[in-house]
Amino acid sequence: MSWSKLKQNLESFLSPALNGKVEYRATGYRYLPDKAGLCYIAVDKKNVLNMRDTTTQIRWYQAEQEIKNDSNIQIPINNEEIEAIRKETKGVVPEDRLQVMARSRKLSECAKEIFSAQSSLSKSNFIVVATKFLSTPIEESLESHDILLNILALVDRRVGKKRLLNMAEKMKLKHPIVQYFYELRVGTL
């Protein structure tokens, strides 16, 4: 599929409130076959997501430790996770330490997911992911660990207000760029 046709298809699925606000752009290098070109998403004419470009406003993590130490990432912990650690430690660990251990484990899992999703984005081909998005159900794109699929699904008109509001807790575990597009979409409701 050509870029112009793909762009037209993607923009036809944009939420009416984001139509004209969110744009998909691509540059190509016709005479440099080893350069794949750039694909990026612009919001209000500003490039918000350049594939793996460090000049964007969104923070790109370089190591898992950066994710673990980021105070903006909030991890909800439930009683089952605390109970699992209590069973592993045979009840000899104080209650407040159990919460710290549960949070640390969950943050470590979250860090690995964010880091792998971020690294796969830098290698991914925007056109391949966008084509996959157009051919898969919206639920799969929302649940995917692929950052780009999440973004395309969040700005999609098929995702309604109720579903968006129910996703608030899940969004806390996503990459900051996904959270940015979630806030952008929720702000238009």
Rank of each mutant, 00 (worst) to 15 (best):
M1G: 09
S2R: 14
Q8M: 11
L10D: 05
S12T: 13
L14I: 00
L14A: 00
P16W: 02
A17D: 10
G28D: 01
G28M: 08
K35C: 06
A42F: 03
A42H: 05
N47C: 07
L49D: 06
R52N: 13
D53G: 09
D53S: 10
T55M: 12
R59W: 06
Q65A: 12
E66V: 06
K68A: 14
N69I: 01
S71T: 15
I73T: 03
Q74V: 13
I75N: 05
I75W: 03
P76H: 11
E81R: 11
I82G: 00
E83K: 14
A84G: 02
V93W: 08
R103F: 02
S104D: 13
S108M: 14
A111C: 08
Q118S: 02
S122A: 11
S122H: 12
K123F: 09
K123C: 12
S124F: 01
S124H: 01
I127L: 02
V129A: 07
A130K: 08
S135L: 06
T136D: 14
P137Q: 05
E139L: 10
E139I: 11
E140P: 09
L142K: 05
E143Y: 11
H145C: 04
L148A: 05
L149R: 03
I151A: 07
R158H: 09
V159G: 05
K161P: 00
R163M: 04
L165Y: 13
N166R: 11
N166F: 13
A168M: 09
E169N: 10
K170V: 01
M171Q: 11
K172A: 05
H175L: 11
Y182M: 03
E183I: 07
G187C: 07
L189W: 02
L189A: 01
